[in-house]
Each structure stands twice: as structure tokens, then as C-alpha cells.
Nucleic acid binder design. Structure first.
Lengths: 336, 336
DNA sequence: AGGAATAGTCTAAATGTTTATATAACGACT
DNA sequence: AGTCGTTATATAAACATTTAGACTATTCCT
């Protein structure tokens, strides 16, 4: 069906080798022949067969990117940017979605090895106890891999690029405490998720430093880090009304739930209660009370990830690189 | 580096053909030999080379999906669902992002042909005057293609699956008018974008039917369909204050901008002015005044697209299928 | 004129699979 | 003993490229 090099060769009255060389702009082939061949190729809409090409070349020119959830704007941003950077670096990008499932992650890793990608950036699923065995198969297969937006606790072979979440949460909690809040509620998701655990650690760092006693702080661990879960929690806080003066949320979506719930109940933010988010997603600013939050600079994560990956592809040992921790940025708006 | 069929053959003392057959669970090969071969393959972590495989098979088992903007939750949903359905149908999915650029779209189409995908679902870039020439190259290359979420005006060869946007906008505008509104402002983006043009047509249908005169309705065409553009427009409406009683927005993001701006200025929604959105994105419900809006059922778009695509792959002619128009759903909340 | 260098093209092997066809071994049947 | 089937395996070609090395013709030098 589709036209092949062999066909063009026949049409041009030369050998397939010459056609291949001509198409690849080799110096070896005569200017005139080249033009003739290119003309024929163009006329017939020749497009090379990727599979034959990559097989012969013994390289794919592809990188892989694995994300757990494409509907999360945070990962969507990551995808867009890595897509960009990969392009600039001259690689194709294979985007794979694990849909927060370990089994799919397994399959994806096999797929990546099978398609001989030259490097992988992975954001592993966000469930308690990630350990990196799945992705370490990539390393075993000799494929340079970097972990982005989080980190494998037990696998030192896979370097990571992420923001200093602990420091970021410390900073915003500290800011809230400096404002005079003494009875904070911290709203988080399930424990055991690395990126949530270290945020909590940052909060506790700040609380400890302020000398807040155990009884004056409350940590709520919800099963999900969603808007509606946060609404329910906020409802309870509003009802109990134990002089809580700050609600520190583990992400913006939850903060938004808290803000809307309090709003509806006539609780003034930040006058009555201070509320903070985390991530600085697009509608943090579009919230009825614009959110004070912590920005994770995803562009930097994307850039540094690709940069590190390319170094690894270039032969640098993972050990030499080490993990990269990027700064977060406190964004002060109105909610605190 | 990686182990090949040939290597396994040598280790097992059989021919490569036998190994291939064994790995593909063929009945031809002796049970015992098969087990021995599989054991060796497993032991050495054999993973077939995709490129060699696809080259020999003369089929890729892949579908392509092209979206203009992955950060748009609307497309993100589409991606997730089509990814799901493709998997169920036994295909791999190549996700490509055109980043709203025609040039990239060109490149992507070449890539798709080059990698011999068996079918494509495309959501073309959202700029004035899309005409489908770029994607019609897929048809020329014999690759079944369907257009999702919008439609090519001039290319009847590419069937489309989308919601009835005109009817949807008609319905919500009509609802607003039935409520008694007589001086609506319609906020849209640049004209020439098909999916915006037909929404406007739906609005005008409703206005005409209500007998609203030209002078009592205002149509604002902003350069961008963004939150901040809508905030500015809302600001002007608030200042002018010409008894406008409804603001009908072309999407939720803009409606949210209008709601927040009015909120800040003390204009009560829906008492003073009614506001509506379109799309029913996740935070339509999380808006300070939950948005009355129109839901596009992306799950259906995804399902119908894949279903149609698979029919086309199965040999159905595009002409026989025709475009698929799915119903929208009016979601009544508080803002109208 | 003869040899070397150069330019342009071709031959053939290689990439790692799949698969149609051939072959071999074995038993069963006449 | 020869024929036929069956079963299990091997051979070899095919898929569409790339590329090292061979070959030929031309030009340049002495």
C-alpha cells in the first residue's frame, strides 16, 4: 500500500541504498540524483516506516513519560512541559498514563522496555508505600530513569527531581503562626503517601518551633484529597467551633472546599479563620477569597528532569547526580 | 545488550522459529519445549523488540490521539477515557499534543503515518478557520480517522463525534429568558472558531424566538476565552450598568471570572444578574455561586469516537457513518 | 601512460521478529 | 516394507530500513 524506498529506487532507476542516502541528506550522493529522488519521494508522499528505521538504527529516539493521572492539572502541566523540552532536545515522547494503578504501571514499564525508549521520566502512583521496584526494572534494562514530583524512598538508583515540600509547608505554616494563629487544623490525605507525609512533617516542624502544644493542633487525615472531602471536613470544623483560627490544607482543591463551605456559613476569611492551600493551581487565584498558597514550580521540575535525564543518557552515573530539590514559593493572597 | 530470540534459541538448543512460536503460545510446539523456552525467556527477562515485531507483523496495534491542549481539563478527560477504551479494545494509544499549533499538527500527522497507526482520533486546534486539510492526509494514507469534540467544516471525509453545542446553548439561553431576563450580554471568544460560532448561533436562535430586539442584546467577542479576560469584561459591564440582567458565557472558566468579579463588587447572583457557564467543569460546582451550566458528556464522546473508529477500521465507509451529535445536559444550580 | 585519489553508486549484510514451507522422526496401518 | 499421518522442529524468506565496504568511472598528478 504505502510506497517504500525500494519502489522509489525502481522509479528513479537507482539502488535502495542510494535512495536511503539521498533521503538522509548524505553528502555521498550526487546533487542531481538527490533532487530527482527527493522529487519522486515527495510526489508519491513517501513517509518512512518508523519501525524499519528504528530497527535498523538500533535506536528509537524516544523518551517515555509516565504519569498517574492526566486530569490532575498538576500532571497535565508536567506533561505539556516535558513534551516541549523533549521536542527541543530532539526526542519523541511516549506519554503513558498509569491511572493510579500499579498493574498498569507494570504493563507500562514493559511497554517502555519493549519499545526501547532511551530514557524515562516517571511520576509514580500516589498511593501509600510506593517503593520503586516496578520502575527499577527500567534501570535493570539499562534505561536511564528519573523520578519527577516525588521520590522513591527505598530505591537510590533512581534520582529524583521535586520541590522541597517539607520546607514549603514549613514556610506557609510559619507564616500563619507569625500572623498570630494558635489553634490550627491541618487537613491532609491518607498517611503513607510520601508527598503528603513530608508536607505534614513540615507543618509539625513549624508547630514545634512555635512551641504549640499537642492539644492545640489537630491533624485530620481524610481518605481522599478532594474538594468534596474537604467540604465535609470544613462543615465539621464549623459546627464544632472550638476556636480554630487556621485551616492549613495539603492542596488547593481542598482549600477551595474549605473556603466555599465557610463562605456559605458566613465565616469570614481571613478575619475569623485563616485558610491556606498548596500547589497554586490556576483557580487558586480565581477562588472567591484568593488563596494564600505555596507554588510548586512545575516548569523547573520539567526542565531539571529532562536535563538530568539527558545527562544520564550521556553516561553520567545516577550516583553522581543525586536528588534535586527545588525551592517552592510562598504566594500570599487574601485567605491568610 | 538486551537478550533476543536468537539468544534464547541457542540457550534452549532450538531454532529461533520454535522460540517465537513458543512465546506466542502456539499449539504447534511441544508442551515440554515450550515450558523450557518460557523458563529461559523469563529467567533472562526477555522482552520482545516492538519494532522488529511490528515490522514483521505489518501492523502496529496502535491508535493515535491528537489533542490541542492537555492542560484543558476537557481534553484531559478525553485523553483519559480514550486511553481507557483503546486499552479495552486491545490497542495501544499514542497521545500527541499539538499545543494549539498548526505546524506541530503537521508534524504529528507525519509521525502518525510514519508509525503506521491503525486509526486516529483527532481534536484539531481551536483557531479560526480550521479546514481539515492537515488531517485529511491521514485519509489519503488510508488511515481511518475521526474528529472528536468539533467538526471539520469543509471535509466530509472525516466523520465527527461531538455534542450538540448549538442546541445546548439554545437550551440554557432559553431557560434564562423563561426566567424573565430581557437584556442579556453574551460573552464569547474570537469568531471563526467553529465550536464558538455554533454556540453563538444557539444563543441567537433563542433570542430570536423570544422576540428580543437587536438593541437589547449585546455580544462581546474577546480575544481569549480565559478567566482574566472574562473578569475584565465583567468589570466593564458592572461599571456601565445598563440594566443588564443576564451574562451568558461561552464556557465555565469565563463564567467563574464574571461571578467572582460581580461578587467582589457586591452584585448579587442571581438576584441582580443571572450568570451561566458552559461545559460543567469540575469547579463549576465549586464556584462561590455554583454555576448553572451545560454539561458536555465527554465520556460519551470518547466512547462513541472509539466505537466509530473501530467500525471504520473494520471496513465501514466514512460516508455510511455520518457525523454523530450527542445531547448536552442542562445543569441547573444557583447562578441562574 | 600509469597510478592514485575522488566521486558516485551498488551489493550485501544487518537489525529482531514472524511464518510459510520443508524436513525429520515416529507410529500405525496395509 | 512401504505408505500415510501426525507431531515437532528447522530452514529460509520476508518485513523496510541503514550502512560498511566493494566497485566503477572519472579526474588529477607525475
Amino acid at each position: 500500500m504505502a510506497i517504500r524506498i525500494k519502489d522509489i529506487a525502481k522509479l528513479a532507476g537507482v539502488s535502495p541504498a542510494t535512495v536511503s542516502l539521498a533521503l538522509n541528506e548524505s553528502e555521498l550522493v550526487n546533487e542531481e540524483t538527490r533532487k530527482r529522488i527527493l522529487a519522486i519521494a515527495h510526489e508519491h508522499g513517501y513517509i518512512p516506516n518508523t519501525y524499519a528505521r528504528r530497527l535498523a538504527l538500533r535506536r528509537s529516539g524516544m523518551l517515555g513519560l509516565v504519569v498517574p493521572d492526566i486530569e490532575n492539572v498538576y500532571y497535565a502541566m508536567l506533561v505539556r512541559m516535558i513534551n516541549n523540552y523533549a521536542q527541543i532536545a530532539g526526542y519523541g515522547l511516549s506519554i503513558l498514563i498509569s491511572d493510579n494503578s500499579r498493574e498498569l504501571e507494570e504493563k507500562i514499564v514493559t511497554e517502555l522496555i519493549s519499545s526501547r525508549v532511551e530514557g524515562v521520566i516517571c511520576a509514580p502512583v500516589n498511593i501509600p508505600g510506593i517503593s520503586g521496584e516496578i520502575f527499577s526494572r527500567l534501570i535493570d534494562a539499562g534505561i536511564p530513569t528519573v523520578c519527577a514530583t516525588t521520590r522513591f524512598e527505598y530505591t537510590s538508583f533512581i534520582p529524583s527531581v521535586m520541590c522541597g515540600l517539607r520546607e514549603g509547608m514549613y514556610e506557609i505554616a510559619n507564616y500563619v503562626f507569625q500572623r498570630g494563629c494558635k489553634r490550627p487544623v491541618y487537613i491532609s490525605g491518607p498517611s503513607g503517601v510520601y508527598t503528603l507525609d513530608i508536607r505534614l512533617a513540615g507543618f509539625l516542624d513549624a508547630a514545634r518551633e512555635m512551641g504549640l502544644c499537642e492539644s492545640s493542633i489537630e491533624v485530620i487525615e481524610l481518605p481522599e484529597v478532594t474538594y468534596s472531602a474537604a467540604c465535609d471536613a470544613a462543615e465539621k470544623i464549623a459546627v464544632a467551633n472550638e476556636k480554630v483560627d487556621a485551616v492549613i490544607c495539603v492542596n488547593d482543591m481542598m482549600a477551595l472546599g474549605v473556603v466555599n463551605t465557610f463562605n456559605r456559613r458566613g465565616i469570614a476569611i481571613p478575619q475569623d479563620i485563616v485558610v491556606t492551600g498548596f500547589d497554586d493551581v490556576i483557580f487558586a487565584e480565581a477562588s472567591p477569597v484568593p488563596l494564600t498558597t505555596v507554588r510548586q514550580d512545575i516548569e523547573s521540575i520539567a526542565r531539571e528532569s529532562i536535563e538530568l535525564l539527558i545527562k544520564l543518557i550521556g553516561g553520567q552515573k545516577p550516583g553522581e547526580a543525586g536528588d534535586i530539590v527545588l525551592p517552592t514559593q510562598l504566594v500570599i493572597r487574601c485567605s491568610a
